[in-house]
């Protein structure tokens, strides 16, 4: 029997492949990965768009068919919620008018409206499928790296991480690199919201003297200038002290499920 030398075995090939890939992951050559991403994304984009459309439509049809039984109960709940929200809206309208009048009286600039670009999700990815989205607006729609991405009128979900010709990659707030300066709307607690490796969001680095409780909402504070002030991030859960007892922190529940997002809006920087 002819015995194979070590470098002829599958194990040696596996080790070699692992070493090369490990080196690539450690080195992280963006000058190699960026062109690969740009070229392949241009090639794949029409197919991603078509197949994601089919997949989303199919999923929504299945969800609709399976939820018919719950529709009556859900409808009643929504009617009740709608009445409450109408009452709240009437109150807020009055407060808004009062706020605008006061801002004029004190010569403060009125809050600017955002210029939004609507985009559709064509791909999802990440360690927990909650870290990045591919959307169908790119450099052609003046999208740039760092622009905030919101759902609805102002629920912050992430920011643009990389722009391709007809598409862009959005890093979600749950991604490990994500960090946003936030505050409670009354300004009593300030801190940062960071991603927990796709597992959720954490309101962190809150000084011990700041006051907040479970159920409080947090919005972007505008510090650092990366995100405009007042974008909703989520609702706080039970607060706790960090192990070193220097700060407080609390898990954050986002009002949107990241895996469910289909349409987003990108806030353009050029004309905020």
């Amino acid at each position: 029997m002819v015995r194979k030398l070590f470098f002829q075995t599958k194990l040696s090939k596996a080790l070699l492949a692992l070493c090369i890939l490990g080196f690539l992951a450690w080195w992280n050559p963006s000058f190699v990965m960026k062109p690969i991403a740009a070229v392949t994304q241009v090639l794949f984009f029409p197919f991603e768009r078509l197949f994601s459309y089919v997949a989303f439509e199919s999923r929504e049809t299945v969800q609709f068919l399976s939820s018919i039984g719950e529709l009556k109960t859900r409808n009643e709940e929504l009617l009740r919620e709608n009445l409450d929200l109408r009452a709240e809206e009437a109150l807020l309208k009055e407060v808004r008018q009062e706020n605008e009048t006061l801002r004029r009286d004190f010569d403060l600039n009125l809050r600017k409206q955002y210029q939004l670009v609507a985009a559709e999700v064509v791909g999802l990815g990440g360690l927990a499928q909650g870290q990045s989205l591919i959307v169908n607006q790119g450099s052609g729609a003046h999208v740039e790296t760092g622009m905030p991405v919101v759902v609805g009128k102002g629920i912050l979900v992430g920011k643009i991480a990389e722009v391709f010709i007809g598409s862009a990659r959005v890093d979600l707030l749950s991604s490990p690199e994500s960090m946003v300066a936030v505050t409670t709307p009354d300004g009593l607690a300030k801190g940062i919201v960071r991603g927990e490796h796709g597992l959720g969001l954490l309101f962190d680095m809150v000084p011990r003297t700041d006051v907040f409780k479970r159920g409080d909402t947090i919005v972007t504070s505008g510090l650092g200038g990366e995100f405009p002030r007042g974008l909703l991030v989520g609702t706080l859960q039970d607060p706790e002290y960090t192990p070193d007892k220097l700060f407080q922190r609390a898990p954050v529940i986002s009002p949107v499920k990241y895996a469910d997002i289909r349409f987003v809006s990108i806030i353009l920087r050029s004309n905020p």
Binding site: L21, A25, S30, M33, I36, G123
Partner: peptide
Amino acid sequence: VVICDSILFGAFQFASLYFVLVAY
């Protein structure tokens, strides 16, 4: 793996070494 990582993360992931281990 390289195409997916480059599109979804913009960088090659350490966790992607796992697929080689699975194949072996």
